[in-house]
Design a protein around this nucleic acid. Structure first.
Length: 504
RNA sequence: GGCGGCAUAGCCAAGCGGUAAGGCAGAGGUCUGCAAAACCUCUAUACCUCGGUUCAAUUCCGAGUGCCGCCUCCA
């Protein structure tokens, strides 16, 4: 497999050939959540994006060391703890637990390390002390600030000019700081706040310092990939670069990857706008894989407009994928029962080559993780295999080349969708049964008739059908439909479902 | 005010110098006693507008219009 991949680097605003520091190893750090509330779909997009990047790099054979942190000490957590008469520790551990539940539900793989800021305090103090020693930071009454003017690369990630930032500033300048751009590495604690001893008295860490400390602790001074939502570019990541590179004198990160935002009605989702949707809100109504697929249909760097209709559309697509896997299973069964004969001597003039598809698929993902394009390759393949299978069922035979192609196609679809995209984790039959398209209709439903009654009527109807008394059979079909029950005659017997909106 | 992004069929969305992937929805068909489900086929004289460069532009350049984001905590 060709390992040559291109990644869009926020630092250069262009795609670059990816070259890890160590040939076979990738050091990756992704900014995690501040644990003070349920995670929203913006978090879901970010962590699903990096989950796919993680899975794909591993698929290419890299040993990926993935670190994703938790911010468990911060103003918002303190406020929540005060509001709820609780403690910072209780609040943060509660929401870290909820976050893990969400990530597990979404099939997001666990990183190798999930450090918490509060477990890295001494490393942060060391960093801040070192920066003061080097003249990159200064202390004022127990607060420690980073001196932005001491780092000449400031603004290289967000492509901002320091002078313009100052000129455009509408932020009231903190009188204590030398410069309004200077940011806190360490904050003096107020009464009743959690605090740690430091050379500057009791206090707690500033936000930006934690990621530098945790990244260095687990991955070293220079790493390959650092990622997060595009809102983190400034000031968070810009500040991380400033403090890390000032401290080590080395390049902090080679590739900066940022995912686009989730919007609601074309506007940024945010708490102040009250257009906030949690991961739970979506999983109440849809299968987690539908959400994953919804995100994958759009390139990770574009903003994405969230809507339940969009997830519904993705769910239908997901169903198509499951149907294809199921159809292949049925086909193999027919082969096993000799109901389709394998014609060994037959060779088709233009045998399909699975590599045409796999190459397109890998090339798409290697071009800045273009999941939308890679998916189109999968759907093309699905159409091709569906047709091949249906044709062979119709003819009760298949030539050995096509059969071989089907086997490799099925294996490829399964391994790429499950292994790289984190889809098709369910048993196909069960998924299809519980997700069949709903019939929109008013009235009826589970309250109007019992399962026993329905089964009795189905038996009666099938008796009529056996005797070819279709008129009476249809009377029962109609009767049940009025009660909101739809009958479906399948090869395995008659099944039923309720009309109205069923939620999966 | 400064910086940046986006504008492709009914909807979503790839592509980005050589004449428009894919998904959803819709329409036809196969199958079925009828139906449903499934599957197959079809569905953009051309990619916001106006100029320019080019043999050739949706794709590059310029101007304009519209939407959005960052410059403050935020995935």
């Amino acid at each position: 497999m060709d390992k040559k991949i291109y990644i869009y680097n926020t630092l250069s605003l262009s795609k670059e050939l990816f070259k890890p520091i160590d040939e076979d190893r990738v050091l990756m750090y992704v900014c995690g959540i501040t644990a003070y509330d349920l995670s929203h779909i913006g978090h879901a997009r970010a962590y699903i994006t990096f989950d796919i990047i993680y899975r794909y790099l591993m698929r290419l054979g890299y040993n990926v060391i993935y670190v994703r942190n938790f911010t468990d000490i911060d103003d918002k957590i303190i406020k929540k703890a005060n509001d709820e008469n609780s403690t910072v520790e209780k609040i943060s551990s509660k929401y870290i637990g909820e976050y893990h539940k969400d990530m597990d539900a979404l099939y997001v793989l666990k990183p190798a390390y999930e450090p918490k800021a509060t477990e890295t305090i001494s490393e942060m103090i060391n960093l801040a002390s070192g920066l003061i020693r080097k003249g990159n930071a200064y202390e004022i009454n127990g607060d420690v600030f980073f001196r932005v003017s001491s780092f000449k690369g400031y603004g290289k990630l967000s492509h901002k000019n320091i002078d313009e930032l100052i000129a455009g500033s509408r932020i009231p300048v903190n009188e204590e700081k030398e410069n309004f751009l200077d940011f806190a590495l360490w904050k003096k604690s107020k009464e009743g706040e959690p605090s740690w001893d430091s050379p500057w008295g009791k206090g707690r860490p500033g936000w930006h310092i934690e990621c530098s400390a945790m990244s260095m602790k687990f991955l070293g001074e220079s790493i390959d990939i650092h990622g997060g939502g595009s809102d983190l570019i400034f000031p968070h990541h810009e500040n991380e670069i400033a403090q890390s590179e000032s401290y080590t004198g080395r390049n902090f990160v080679n590739y900066w990857i940022h995912n686009g935002f989730v919007n609601i009605n074309s506007e940024k989702m945010s708490k102040s706008l009250k257009n906030f949707i949690t991961i739970r809100d979506v999983l109440d109504k849809f299968h987690p894989e539908a959400l994953r697929l919804f995100f994958m249909f759009t390139h990770y760097r574009s903003f994405i407009d969230f809507s339940f209709e969009g997830v519904e559309s993705a769910k239908q697509s997901l169903l198509r994928l499951y149907q294809a896997v199921n159809l292949y299973g049925e086909f193999k069964k027919l082969i096993g029962e000799n109901r389709i004969t394998l014609k060994k001597e037959d060779f088709s003039a233009k045998a399909e080559n699975i590599e045409n598809y796999t190459n397109d698929f890998y090339n798409s993902l290697s071009d800045d993780f273009n999941t939308a394009k890679a998916l189109s390759v999968i759907f093309d393949l699905v159409r091709r295999t569906n047709k091949m299978i249906n044709d062979s069922i119709a003819q009760s035979s298949i030539n050995s080349e096509d059969a071989l192609f089907l086997d490799s196609a099925a294996a490829f679809i399964k391994e790429s969708l499950t292994g790289i995209f984190g889809l098709l984790n369910e048993n196909p039959k069960r998924f299809i049964e519980s997700n069949s398209a709903d019939i929109a209709a008013d009235g009826g439903g589970e309250d109007s008739i019992s399962g026993e009654e329905i089964k009795k009527l189905i038996d009666e109807r099938n008796e009529f059908r056996k005797n070819k008394d279709y008129g009476s059979a249809d009377v029962i079909r109609k009767l049940l439909l009025e009660k909101g029950v739809v009958l479906e005659d399948t090869g395995f017997g008659t099944t039923y479902k309720f009309t109205g909106t069923k939620r999966q």
